[in-house]
Design a protein around this nucleic acid. Structure first.
Length: 333
DNA sequence: AAAGCCACCAACCGCAAGGCA
DNA sequence: ATGCCTTGCGGTTGGTGGCTT
């Protein structure tokens, strides 16, 4: 015996709502509210609709103060930050955006925002000054373009941004004698999206547009990779899970096209050796990840050679903060 | 002009949680 | 404690319109 149907499927109308139906529903709810429950509402309101359909139509379209149309930059930021923190909990995300519905946000994320975030890295002004191999490495490969549908890793990638971010937030918080767990949501949002330069140094690495920035953020910490042990200090998960898991089990795959997680196609680039933080665009991270996986690179030397094209270093001593890069272990200017 | 493709988004569906008798 | 009913959530579907070939 299965579940009892919520309504008589044969006698309910499906598909788009007509203006007349909208008017009937709006008028009824205006007078009587849901009149007890949604299940019985359609009958009372004279609608040949399922109660769930009425509820959805009301919540997502007819109720007052629903905001339609373009999302603002600020709304984008909130969605991205919360998605990176809590994942696809659309109703919670919607609760932070007055007038927006979970359905709206979910659609917006799936159709637009996700792609927007996949947009090109913001190094364009530097591209033309780079040697051809590096310029090419900054272009989306045909494989990348052909397999954009194979990017479930994107959401994971943005979650992966959290560890880098939280690690540095944690370090920053601890250095000012605050508990890492007392970091507020606002602080997280501000810091995640903000660059702060002090004496030419990048003080609060995090996610900026589509770039992942990581690396030491104080004089004592040398850089950002396994070579200085910082990856083992990184945590992942949301802000409440700091310290629960060690990044060392997660991030220690220098050049290998697997991070050891079953069915997980991510390649986490843990490629230290720069002095003040590595700068990669997420696009290139995914791009390279994909390249390595689908060309079945199994030669570590070859992989390392490829990585040499893509590491970009923001130098500790570079007061004007221009981007420099390493090519075959030689710093280029 | 027609066909094919793709992006968008409203709506649907199944499941889980919560409330209540 | 249990089972039924309703509500809420999130993944998915399918219709539509615009763009490209």
């Amino acid at each position: 015996m299965g579940r009892a149907p919520c309504c008589d499927k044969a006698n309910v109308k499906k598909g788009p709502w007509s203006p007349e139906e909208d008017a009937m529903l709006k008028e009824f709810i205006g007078k009587y509210g849901t009149a007890g429950n949604w299940i019985s509402l359609p009958q009372k309101a004279g609608l040949r609709r399922c109660g769930k359909s009425c509820r959805l139509r009301w919540l997502n379209y007819l109720r007052p103060n629903i905001k339609h149309g373009e999302f603002s930059e600020e709304e984008d930021r909130v969605i991205c930050t919360l998605y990176a923190t809590i994942g696809s909990r659309w109703s919670i995300i919607a609760s932070q955006l007055p007038g927006r519905t979970d359905n709206d946000i979910k659609n917006y994320w799936n159709t637009k925002l996700k792609k927007k975030l996949m947009g090109y890295s913001n190094f364009p002004s530097n591209h033309t000054n780079l040697p051809l191999p590096l310029q090419n490495s900054l272009q989306p490969t045909p494989q990348f373009q052909a397999h954009t549908t194979m990017m479930p890793t994107l959401s994971q990638l943005f979650r992966d941004c959290s560890p880098f971010t939280t690690h540095h937030l944690q370090a920053k918080a601890l250095s000012s004698f605050e508990s890492s767990l007392s970091i507020s949501q606002n602080f997280l949002i501000n810091q995640t999206y903000g660059f702060e330069m002090q004496d030419g140094l990048l003080m609060n690495p995090g996610i900026f547009d589509n770039m992942v920035i990581f690396g030491g953020n104080n004089e004592a910490a040398s850089c950002s990779s396994s070579s200085d042990g910082s990856c083992s200090k990184m945590s992942f998960g949301n802000i409440n899970e700091i310290k629960k898991e060690s990044m060392s089990t997660y991030l220690h795959y220098q050049g290998y096209p697997s991070n050891g997680y079953e069915d997980d196609q991510r390649l986490i680039l843990d490629y230290g050796a720069t002095s003040y933080g590595d700068v990669l665009s997420t696009r290139n991270l995914v791009n390279l990840n994909h390249e390595l996986l689908h060309n079945n690179y199994d030669n570590l030397e070859e992989v390392n050679e490829l990585l040499n094209y893509i590491i970009i270093n923001r130098s500790r001593n570079n007061n004007n903060s221009s981007v420099s890069y390493y090519f075959n272990d030689e710093k280029q200017t």
